[in-house]
């Protein structure tokens, strides 16, 4: 099945970057875009078919032994929160 896509108003810098990236990967720009679409749809498929608990497994492993207080501290440190309270 063929679907022709026409992308308007893409800045020249982005088109150049896309061509460079495709070339780096040994792909034509068309095949690179096709690969991006395939990967995106595969992510959607996996996210819809696996549970939150399953998807959280790598996080549990990485954060094993980290206390909730430490998690809050890490989260606070990395959020956009500004701590210049009254």
């Amino acid at each position: 099945m063929t679907l022709k896509l026409k992308l308007d108003n893409v800045p020249a810098t982005k088109v150049s970057a896309l061509k460079r990236k495709a070339s780096k990967l040994g792909l034509s720009p068309e095949n690179y875009i096709k690969q991006l679409i395939d990967e995106d749809l595969a992510l959607d498929q996996e996210a819809s078919s696996r549970s939150f608990a399953e998807l959280a497994a790598p996080f549990r492993e990485a954060l094993d032994g980290v206390s909730e207080r430490e998690l809050d501290r890490l989260s606070r440190k990395k959020t956009s929160r500004r701590r210049n309270r009254d």
Binding site: L43, R50, F52, L55, P58, A62, L63, V66, K78
Partner: peptide, 24 residues
């Protein structure tokens, strides 16, 4: 948080999967 100080790094793909599950 997960790429900064943890010994086991989480690939961005896993983060994306969790976020898409939340959207789902």
């Amino acid at each position: 948080v997960l790429t900064d100080s943890r010994k086991n790094r989480i690939p961005p793909r896993h983060i994306e999967l969790v976020l898409r599950r939340l959207r789902y």
